[in-house]
């Protein structure tokens, strides 16, 4: 399968990555090569195989519904933020597009 630059551009938008023209070109080439490589899975005859997303078959139980005090102070949480006002995390104004 060959991926063209426009496909990379679209995928990059979904993934929120700004890429230069040179990067778009390079990734189109490299991803095409990787997809050619993965095409070998077709030879395994997997049509009747059930998908396997997780390997464990025994897992922990759900936890009891108990609240505990927040382990993070607000100051601690905000301390890592690139922009904050002491109360909120700040981002550029969201006016153009709304939550999907």
């Amino acid at each position: 399968m060959t991926i063209d630059k426009d496909t990379v551009r679209h995928v990059a938008l979904l993934a929120r990555l700004e890429l230069s023209e040179a990067e778009l070109e390079r990734y189109a080439r490299e991803l095409s090569a990787v997809l050619d490589y993965v095409a070998q899975l077709d030879a395994l005859g997997l049509e009747h195989e059930e998908p396997l997303a997780q390997v464990n078959d025994e897992f922990a139980k759900a936890r009891e519904d108990r609240a505990r005090p927040a382990p993070l102070s607000r100051a601690e949480a905000l301390s890592q933020a690139p922009a904050q006002d002491g109360t909120y995390f700040l981002v550029p104004p969201v006016v153009e597009y709304l939550e999907p």
Partner: peptide
Amino acid sequence: DDLLSLYTKTRGQGFGSEVKRRILLGTF
């Protein structure tokens, strides 16, 4: 200065080329 470019620039500049390659492949 807008949200979309905050995302795309931060991630475009913050990640190295192999990470971007894999994010693109996985997103695809």
